[in-house]
């Protein structure tokens, strides 16, 4: 749609700028707060420009180890969270692709049973099955491990259905042409299905990475050792309502650091992500 009405364009831009300001201001404010000393933050009003404590605050948070969260450095927490988010995203994608592949392209006994089993799990998000899952994890001795942190979150009916819908749009003749060209099931998956799905995979990766990054309830349950904790949990632990001396300057630093990786993932994958959402290349 290409319109040439200057006034309409102006209004549209105003609305967009306003929207960006509303979204960006709290983040900017957090960043500003992360560069001031605790005293400055606690004595309002807070300035709107960054202060001079950038290096001190970030250095303290990253290397120093923070008392409220068991003396673990933020670096370690970021690493834990990145491992968790990546493992969940990759795991979900791999499992969903394989199960969608089986359901769409193969005829085997009980195909519909499996289809409905997967479908039913849509009604059982983590929160609903959290106690039995916890019990299983305890029995398997997976408390405070990366496996325990990620495995229960990997199965994904939603992603399976997304891939199933996409696979169903692939013309049957393409599958037949590949059969005639001598591509067996594995070759078909690798040479044709995966390349065709790559924009979908990228879009899903972004969504699932953020989903994994922001997990709260499950990591809270499954980790007791602060060295296995995630950044989101740590952030929560640092804010103490009874204790007056919450290190707000460090809280802000941690908040900024917690935002950065998902933002980077979005920025880096943006091109693919948008393509996957709007384009059907066929």
């Amino acid at each position: 749609m290409q319109e040439n009405r200057p006034l309409a364009g102006l209004v549209a831009h105003l609305v967009l700028v306003l929207g960006v300001l509303i979204v960006a201001f709290p983040i900017w404010y957090t960043f500003v707060a992360s560069t001031h000393s605790l005293q400055t933050i606690l004595s309002p009003p807070l300035p709107l420009v960054p202060g001079d404590r950038f290096l001190d605050n970030y250095g303290e948070a990253l290397v120093g180890g923070i008392g409220q969260i068991g003396g673990v450095g933020i670096g370690r927490l970021l690493f834990n969270t990145a491992v968790m988010a990546t493992a969940i995203a990759v795991g979900k994608i791999v499992i969903s692709i394989l199960s969608a592949y089986a359901i769409v392209f193969f005829r085997f006994p009980g195909r519909m049973v499996f289809f409905w089993l997967i479908f039913i799990t849509l009604m059982l998000p983590v929160e609903v099955r959290i106690l039995p899952t916890y019990k299983v994890m305890v029995d398997l001795g997976l408390i405070d491990t990366y496996t325990g942190l990620t495995l229960p979150l990997m199965a994904s009916a939603t992603a399976t259905f997304l891939f199933r819908q996409f696979f169903l749009t692939i013309p049957p003749e393409l599958v037949e042409a590949a059969r005639i060209d001598g591509a067996g099931p594995m070759k078909f998956l690798r040479d044709i299905l995966l390349p065709l799905s790559k924009t979908n995979i990228a879009a899903l990766f972004v969504i699932l990475f953020i989903y994994g990054w922001t997990q709260y309830l499950w990591p809270l349950l499954i980790t007791s050792d602060s060295r296995m904790s995630t950044i989101v949990i740590a952030l929560r632990k640092m804010v103490s309502f009874t204790d007056a001396d919450t290190p707000w300057h460090l809280v802000m630093v941690v908040a900024i650091l917690a935002i950065l990786p998902p933002v980077m993932v979005v920025v880096l994958m943006q091109r693919w992500f948008v393509k996957g959402l709007v384009e059907t290349e066929k």
Binding site: P171, A177, R179
Partner: peptide
């Protein structure tokens, strides 16, 4: 099908959309 030594031309072409023409022919 691959073992029957036949080649088929489909109504909707059924070319691999992500491959170049050369790769389509070579696959």
């Amino acid at each position: 099908p691959a073992a029957r030594d036949i080649a088929m031309v489909f109504q909707n072409y059924a070319l691999y959309p992500h491959m170049s023409v050369r790769q389509n022919l070579a696959y």
